[in-house]
Amino acid sequence: MKFKLLTLLIVFFLFEVHASSSNVEQNQIFKNIRCLVCQGQSIADSNSDFAQTIKLVIKDKIKEGKTEKEIYNFLIEKYGQWIVYKPPMNGSNFLFWLFPYLIFIAGGVVIIMFFKKKENN
């Protein structure tokens, strides 16, 4: 009975809590852009001339309706991949993104191998 009640409440909340926003999050973009004149800071954290300028441009681009990805690509075109904290998933970077998961799977296989030995014996 208790289970049913809980489940019912959860289903209710699932329908209620649904207002997800799709607009481009300005701060999130700022945090993903590296401040080139600083040591390891994002433009959100820095107040250098460069950070100030680039923030203005990004705000403009958001107003123009550019997506997050388009903004990143624009900046990579101008400043190189160094400027984004999230390496784009292409070419050699693809392996980089995949590698942790390959290790994860490999680790799982190793653990399962411990079990198999038991069946043989």
């Binding site: 993903n32 991949q81 160094w82 390496p87 993104w97 942790p100």
Partner: peptide, 24 residues
């Protein structure tokens, strides 16, 4: 390591920051 390796072997400089770690 990846940015260090990429820089040493191909001269490409890239940044790996919070979005990578958070996503993975």
């Amino acid at each position: 390591f990846y940015p260090i390796f990429l820089d040493a072997l191909t001269n490409n400089k890239i940044s790996v920051g919070p979005p990578f770690y958070n996503t993975v």
